[in-house]
C-alpha cells in the first residue's frame, strides 16, 4: 500500500465530488425538465424540489449555530424574513435584466440578513443556553412586528405583492450546492475547528487563545446570511410575502429538522429537511396531524436519542468509497491468509 493514495489527495476528492454534484444535477434535470416542465415528473411534483431546497438551506445554516457552535437560537425565521423582504424589495424596485437581478437580489437578501445577524449576535451571544434562545426568540418577534408596522415599505399585514416568480428548481439546486459547499468548507477549515472547540468547551477554547466572541458572532451572521438567501428564494418562489409566515412556529419547524437529523451533522439536516418537506405532501389526508406528529417526534427523539438520527456523523463520498475499498481489501487479504495457513499445514 502506498502512503499517499489517489483518494487522499484533495484535488481528486474535489473532482469526485464535482462529478457527483453534476450527476445529481443531471438527475434533477431529467426528473423536472430543463425549465421546470417536461421532465419525468409532472409540474406539480417538480415544484416540491424548491421548498425542499429552501428547507435544506435553512436547516443546514441553523445547524451551523445549533450543532457546530453549540448555541440554540430560536429566531432563524426572523433572518429568513429579513432576507426575503430585502430580496423582494430589491427585485421590485430595480429593473436589471432578470438574469442579473435575481442572483443579485439573493445576495442582497443574504447580506442584509448577515448584517442583522451581526447586530443581533453582538448583544445576544453574550448570553448562554436558555437565555440565548429566549433573546433570539425576542428579536425574531420584534423583526416580525416591525415588518408588520411599516406597511409603506413592506405592505404590512396585507403582504408584499408583485414579487417576480424567478425561483426555479435549478436555481434552488445551485444555491443548495453552494451553501453545502461553503458550510462544509468552513467546518473543515481552521475556523471550523475553532467553532467546534467553542461548542466543546468555551472556557478552554478561550484559554487556548481562540477569540470566542469573534467566532460566535461571525458564525451567527454566516448562518443568518444563508437564512437570508433561503428567504430570497422563498420570496421569489411564492411571489407574496406575509409576515405571519415568519413567526416562532417557522423557527421551530427548522429546529425540528436540525434536531431530527442530528445536531452537528450536515447530511442529517439535509435528509431531515428533505423528508419533512416531502412527507406532508405525500400524506395530504393526514395534514391535520402533521404538527402533532412533529411535536411528538421532537419529544420522542429527545427522550430516546438526543443526538438525532445521524448524531454527529457526516457523510463523505470519498470516505465511503475508501471504506468500501478497505473492506474489500481486508476480505481478499483474509482469504489469502487463509490459503497460506492451509498451505502451511
Amino acid at each position: 500500500m502506498k502512503p499517499t493514495r489517489l483518494i487522499d489527495k484533495t484535488w481528486f476528492r474535489y473532482i469526485i465530488n464535482t462529478i457527483a454534484v453534476l450527476l445529481a444535477f443531471g438527475l434533477l434535470v431529467l426528473l423536472t425538465g430543463p425549465t421546470g416542465e417536461g421532465g419525468l415528473l409532472n409540474k406539480y411534483m417538480s415544484q416540491i424540489f424548491i421548498p425542499m431546497g429552501i428547507n435544506i438551506i435553512l436547516a443546514v445554516s441553523l445547524n451551523l449555530t445549533a450543532g457546530f457552535l453549540g448555541q440554540l437560537p430560536l429566531g432563524h425565521a426572523g433572518f429568513m424574513s429579513v432576507g426575503a423582504y430585502a430580496a423582494a424589495l430589491f427585485s421590485i424596485h430595480t429593473d436589471f435584466p432578470k438574469a442579473i437581478s435575481f442572483p443579485l437580489s439573493l445576495i442582497v437578501g443574504g447580506i442584509v440578513a448577515a448584517i442583522f445577524g451581526i447586530l443581533i449576535g453582538l448583544p445576544a451571544l453574550r448570553l448562554k443556553g436558555d437565555y440565548l434562545a429566549i433573546i433570539t426568540l425576542g428579536f425574531g418577534e420584534i423583526i416580525r412586528v416591525i415588518i408588520l408596522n411599516i406597511p409603506k415599505i413592506t405592505g404590512g399585514a396585507y403582504g408584499l405583492k408583485g414579487i417576480p416568480k424567478d425561483t426555479t428548481v435549478i436555481s434552488t439546486f445551485v444555491c443548495v450546492v453552494i451553501t453545502l459547499f461553503l458550510i462544509h468548507a468552513l467546518i473543515k477549515s481552521r475556523h471550523g475547528r475553532a467553532i467546534i472547540s467553542i461548542r466543546e468547551d468555551e472556557i478552554a477554547s478561550e484559554a487556548s487563545g481562540i477569540p470566542t466572541t469573534y467566532y460566535k458572532v461571525t458564525t451567527f451572521s454566516f448562518s443568518a446570511f444563508f437564512a437570508g438567501i433561503a428567504g430570497g428564494l422563498y420570496a421569489h418562489f411564492i411571489g407574496v410575502l406575509d409576515p405571519a409566515e415568519f413567526g416562532f412556529m417557522r423557527s421551530v419547524e427548522i429546529l425540528v429538522m436540525v434536531v431530527l437529523g442530528g445536531m452537528g451533522s450536515i447530511i442529517g439536516s439535509v435528509v431531515a429537511a428533505g423528508a419533512l418537506t416531502v412527507l406532508p405532501e405525500v400524506l395530504r389526508g393526514f395534514s391535520e396531524y402533521r404538527m402533532v406528529v412533529y411535536s411528538l417526534l421532537l419529544i420522542v427523539v429527545m427522550v430516546f436519542k438526543p443526538s438525532g438520527l445521524f448524531g454527529r456523523y457526516d457523510f463523505s463520498l470519498c470516505g465511503a468509497a475508501s471504506d468500501i475499498a478497505k473492506a474489500i481489501k481486508k476480505l481478499t487479504h483474509r482469504n489469502k491468509l487463509g490459503i497460506h495457513e492451509e498451505a502451511g499445514k
Binding site: M291, L296, M302
Partner: peptide, 21 residues
C-alpha cells in the same frame, strides 16, 4: 440543557396542536 429545552418546545407544540385537533 439544550435537549431539555427542545423537549419543552415539543411539549408546547404537542399541547397546542392536540387541542387544535
Amino acid at each position: 440543557r439544550i435537549s431539555l429545552l427542545i423537549t419543552a418546545i415539543g411539549v408546547s407544540l404537542f399541547l397546542q396542536n392536540t387541542v387544535q385537533l
